[in-house]
């Protein structure tokens, strides 16, 4: 379990990283997902460019409306409150339950989102919070809502040579409620089922998101019906994913029910 030979490139800035990508290097964040694949020789890049120390990706910006966390901010930095949490603790709580501390010490927000594991925490949490991905590439910068950025299992809308630089998380309004629930058999595992519920009436953001479905997060089209208990989580999922059997969706329906309960939405089971 030793990687095949590869070149490791450390760069001074974002421009250097962009140039390395143009030369064919693959991007590497905290290396917590890529590392095992390298060791198993399932990933065999000729060169890796290390984004985790790129200064532009380590920045934090704040406004009255949002906080932008650089893509190379680690899960541990969010967990420990070393960067601002616009949600008043929801991000910190989510970060604290990602894998285990050794992974959180190195794993990065941007690395997790760009890797786009369907069961990863930030993939569902950031989608559930209506966050936006900020991208920079050879032809400039652009903004993409997370639900559009994530296009499939382990797939994103990143174009050739483009780098995820930051995530913009909107500040919730007064009285906003949030529920995030995931099922892991054991601490440290990826979720087998997960769901996030955001009820932010002041800002007009209602969102029920379901993760760990083997695809990009599912954003339910009609959250109001769920919040009003006009449909059950089971029914909502069956409607949204008609191709899947009820048995396959049972755990996810449970996750959604429990996320609703965490958000204080009645007895939604």
């Amino acid at each position: 379990m030793k990687p095949a030979p590869f070149d490791y490139l450390a760069v001074d800035d974002l421009a250097g990283a962009t140039a390395a990508l143009a030369d064919g290097a693959k991007p590497m964040g905290g290396n917590q997902s890529l590392g095992p694949m390298l060791n198993l020789r399932l990933a065999r890049p000729a060169a890796l460019v290390d984004l985790s120390l790129v200064p532009e990706l380590r920045t934090v910006e704040e406004s009255a409306e949002w906080v932008r966390l650089g893509a190379a901010i680690t899960h541990a930095e969010i967990e420990d409150g070393e960067v601002p949490d616009p949600t008043g603790g929801w991000l910190r709580a989510a970060a604290a339950n990602i894998a285990y501390r050794a992974v959180r010490n190195r794993g990065t927000l941007g690395g997790s989102l760009a890797h786009a594991d369907p069961a990863a925490d930030w993939v569902i949490v950031m989608t559930g919070l209506c966050a936006t991905a900020l991208l920079a590439g050879p032809s400039g910068t652009r903004r993409v809502p997370l639900e559009d950025f994530l296009t499939g299992p382990f797939a994103t809308g990143l174009r050739d040579g483009e780098i995820l630089t930051a995530v913009e998380i909107p500040r919730p309004g007064a009285g906003a409620r949030w529920g995030y629930w995931k099922y892991m058999r054991q601490v440290g595992e990826f979720a087998k089922a997960s769901a996030a519920v955001l009820v932010d009436r002041e800002r007009g953001r209602l969102r029920c998101t379901v993760g760990a479905l083997g695809r990009q997060p599912l954003v339910l089209a009609e959250p109001e019906a769920l919040l009003a208990a006009e449909v059950t989580p089971r029914e909502a999922l069956a409607q949204a994913l008609p191709g899947r059997s009820p048995a396959d969706l049972a755990l996810h329906a449970t996750a959604l029910a429990r996320a609703l309960a965490e958000a204080g939405i009645g007895d939604a089971a």
């Binding site: 095992p36 198993l40 058999r185 054991q186 601490v187 440290g188 595992e189």
Partner: peptide, 13 residues
């Protein structure tokens, strides 16, 4: 073939 698939008991269990 990895400890991601072979589940050992952990402290929290």
């Amino acid at each position: 073939s990895t400890l991601a698939d072979y589940h050992l008991p952990v402290a929290a269990d």
